[in-house]
Design a protein around this nucleic acid. Sequence first.
DNA 1: CACTTGACCTGTCCGC
DNA 2: TGCGGACAGGTCAAGT
Length: 294
Amino acid sequence: MPELPEVETIRHDLNPLLKNKRVTGLRVKKTRLLKNARSLFSKHLVGATIIKVERRAKILLLQLSSGYTLVIHLKMTGQLVYVLPEKIRAAGKPGKIYAGGHPIGNVNGVPNKFTYIILKLSDGSNLYFNDVRMFGYWRLIKQSELEAALGHLGPEPLLKNFTLEVFEKNLKRRQKTIIKAALLDQTVVAGIGNIYADESLFAAGISPSRRVSTLTTAERKELHKSIKKVLVAAVAARGTSFNSYIDGLGRSGTYWDKRLVYGRKGEPCPRCRKILDKIIVAGRGTTYCRYCQK
DNA sequence: CACTTGACCTGTCCGC
DNA sequence: TGCGGACAGGTCAAGT
């Protein structure tokens, strides 16, 4: 479930490691993860140099010298792990690593049985794409077509253009829907997923099942502030490791220990000490405090 | 048109 | 110990 903070951590780590390196080889074990013809990857990815690694919403963008951009979505369980040449030979058997008491997958010793794509780089290093559930994808898009391809996405919540005015304008389009669904809608604000939707709503003291139309001006303002606050803290903690998220070097994030409500059903609310509930909102598991989220 | 549900997948956990 | 079923939740297509 990599969301904005997790993908941003991967981007931050991978950019200096991949920058200016040439792709010398590509191994694909599950062709279905490629959203273009295999031949297009042979033509425009292999042999190209990676200019830089960027991020938009939850999507990684590897800008290539071939005039294409490699678009990678990790979806639920995708992992991108970079391994130095000297470590490739030394890689041991797969082993489980844990975060917050939860197993987060086999990562020591890539490639493992879930490694479906391997990118070989000019310095002998490898980039492994693992994805247990195979929801993730790689896609090549011409740079001239990239803007249009990503055009539907809403504002980046950590950039200056995510103003209160923009947030309110985008919420206006979704007056009838439930606020949690609006936060998960990537056209309203880009990069929020289930964890940070719950955390932001808790921080703002707003019930996840409220209709957007019922939010007061003060509540919209508080939510706008809370989204930024939660995401900034999560990026600083290098993301949340739950389920299968790991960063570009196979490490866990530490936001798991800092989260206030997500995954804490049955625990006391950090604010009022009453027990946190878990319900289904907009089809997603949602943890919240029914007493202090109004 | 706006919103909700189902499908895509597989590993893990829980109850019987 | 085994097994069926619920659950995880990003996104898009299909359904209401």
